[in-house]
Amino acid sequence: MASLHAFANPARFLKIARPLTGWLFWTGAALIAFGCWAGLTQTPPDYLQGDSVRILYIHVPTAWLGMGGWSGIALSSIAYLVWRHPLANVAARAIAVPGAMFAALCLMTGSIWGRPTWGTWWQWDGRLTSMLLLFFVYLGYIGLARADREQGGDGRIPALFGVAGSVLLPIIRYSVVWWNTLHQGESIGLASSTIDGSMLWPLGFTLAGFSLFFAAVVLMRMRDMLARARNEARLRRMARA
């Protein structure tokens, strides 16, 4: 556990996070740009969907980060509840806003793809509904965490909410397996994919790119929160003096 404690030290965290932020951001931006260019120009259209298939290079990373973001909130919340590291609490709050944004982007790109493919913008299907619920749960978490902070809480209530909200993750993942849904089944498994290789490869670039971008945004927000906390502490000391 000694190594984990070392990273939980805010001063050491800032020393690593400061140079890492820029590196993650620019590498992510380059990978996204290349992946989008390749996905728009270097891959064949689908035999049924035509060119609208290309939205998958954005839709899949946003879905992955919308769900991955909540996994991060849940893990940070557990770390905060068990080890009481303030940094874990900061991390969970920092993930919430970009996570909600990516969940919303996932719903929007899916809707844009659904109109030409299915013939509808929206249906109350198991996968679509559970993803919409995750977006609302994000909004609830953001509101709760803000209220908790303003009331001078120690962040334990939002952390419990973070753990409880992860109930949605397996439901979203297995909704297309367990229920009849309009959304198709899983295309990309651990070992194989039902997307032809000639169409799949740019997805690796956009997935990696958006993930690095997400990490950069989380680090920026964490540094911002730590700076604010330090400012507040300084103002309190000055007021007392």
């Binding site: 064949p44 493919t117 249906q123 198709q184 295309s187 039902t194 169409m199």
Partner: peptide, 13 residues
């Protein structure tokens, strides 16, 4: 509503 399946492939394939 058209239900799409999980298979994506170019026209040649």
């Amino acid at each position: 509503l058209a239900k799409h399946d999980e298979k994506y492939m170019p026209p040649e394939v």
